[in-house]
Design a protein around this nucleic acid. Structure first.
Lengths: 251, 251
DNA sequence: TCAAAAGTGTTTGGGTTACACCCATGA
DNA sequence: TCATGGGTGTAACCCAAACACTTTTGA
């Protein structure tokens, strides 16, 4: 058996499903494979895990090498290990997803564009990706959907300042449902996770919307309390869930 | 050693966190390690994944070799891969949890008792287990807690016929909260997942409770529909969540 | 008759849902 | 003045939560 054959006898990799939001659409960052197997196909960015590297470190490295970004939201989703998932040997892969602000990508190096490209998640799901990456993408999207209902992580995908409508469109894109504007605003604002900046959009051909900022401090506070908060007066519930549902309950 | 050789030195295993319920207490099946490292310590059952074996197959094998049981609830939870988690080399482990009926263990082989033993989950958490198994157990318990709120899987831990009180105690043990009897019964029965057997407990020193059976057929139906169901009359919600919360919302 | 657990209904409040019109801006 | 999206309130309903006494059985 040759070198490559030995190499792939048994190995593990990470794949990092990088989600972004732009143009009212949820996107995923894919890489065009330059070599076999699956040369020319789009694939999820990933790499073998280095011997001296924790899994999460590895997932972060994949992200940073590709985008230059650090300290983004990262979550382990699932490990895929079907015997035949890699044509060259036994490779299991640990899938993570990241949430990034596409606005940060303005500073991307030129070399980037050659191989990496944002794709609409829905379209990518209907494209034949390399390896078992369709399955992985589906699973990550499904977990993202669920996560967004129970934790206020949507902000990770938006620029620092955003409007409520942008936020609503984000939730609609992820959940693939439409939400009622008034109810959405009531709920989001009642969470007290947004700072009203008293600034407004500029250069829009309509009434400019108010800009908000995510209150990271308050988020950390909620995080510590498991995303629920004390109710001041009411004697009914001791704690109140922070999110849950965020609209109509369809899974 | 060269790069390739380093990659080759790694291995992956599965650990199967086997939960059971008995005596009003949530239990986990642990193994006493017979050799180094961690000789004499309690550990989660697990094994290296065979080259020609899918991960889930491997987790099922660990369960079957230990207990003889097949076709039990099994779910992948998380993959642990800290560089130093195994003293003998780089071994990442994919953690699964299983839900079994302890009543099935009456037929266990005698050899079983030597090494495997049920432990209260809470006590096990406060015991120093082998490797990073405390972390793994905690994570699995946490996921079980969450899962039990959103899917009717509690039945997997009970004998085929059970009383509503037993079911309530199960939920209380998993969620580590106390539940209101009347509200619990209302909610559980409203799900229509229980068959009233019109049978009763025997030989108990008090009024015998009615026995119920889990309606597997209806469960599969719900599963297909994503654990929500159509509401007949009401025009407010098209679909209604099946579970969620099951009591007081504390995480 | 006593202990022990089974079994059972109603009220209340908070949160989710449904729903429609006027406002501010740039073109 | 027109098009475009921004922004706002209220009523109905549903469900979670709170809560206590009677019943049945074996000892």
């Amino acid at each position: 058996m040759n070198e490559v054959g030995n190499f792939f006898k048994s190995a593990f990799s990470v794949d990092n499903i990088i989600f972004g939001f732009d143009d009212g659409d949820l996107k995923v960052l894919l890489i065009k494979r330059g070599q076999e197997p699956f040369k020319g196909r789009w694939a999820l960015p990933g790499d073998l895990v280095y011997p001296n590297e924790d899994l999460e470190t590895s997932a972060n490295r994949v992200l940073e090498e590709l985008t230059g970004l650090r300290n983004v939201y990262l979550e382990q989703v699932h490990t895929f290990g079907a015997v035949d998932r890699h044509p060259l040997g036994r490779v299991i892969t640990i899938a993570y997803f990241s949430l990034v602000k596409i606005s940060d990508f303005n500073i991307m190096p030129a070399s980037f564009a050659k191989t990496a490209q944002w794709h609409s998640v829905v379209k990518a799901q209907n494209t034949r990706l390399a390896f078992d990456h369709n399955i992985i993408l589906n699973k990550c999207f499904q977990v993202l959907k669920q996560r967004v209902r129970t934790r206020p992580i949507g902000f990770e995908l938006l620029p620092p300042k955003f409007t409520l409508t942008e936020l609503q469109h984000l939730y609609e894109a992820i959940l693939e449902i439409s939400l009622d504007k008034r109810n959405f605003r009531k709920k989001i604002l009642s969470m007290n996770l947004l700072k009203d900046l008293d600034e407004f959009q500029e250069g829009v051909p309509h009434r400019p919307a108010k800009l908000y900022e995510f209150d990271k401090e308050r988020y950390r506070q909620f995080e510590a309390e498991g995303f629920s908060f004390e109710v001041k007066e009411g004697k009914r519930k001791e704690k109140k869930r922070l999110m849950e549902t965020m609209g109509i309950s369809i899974d």
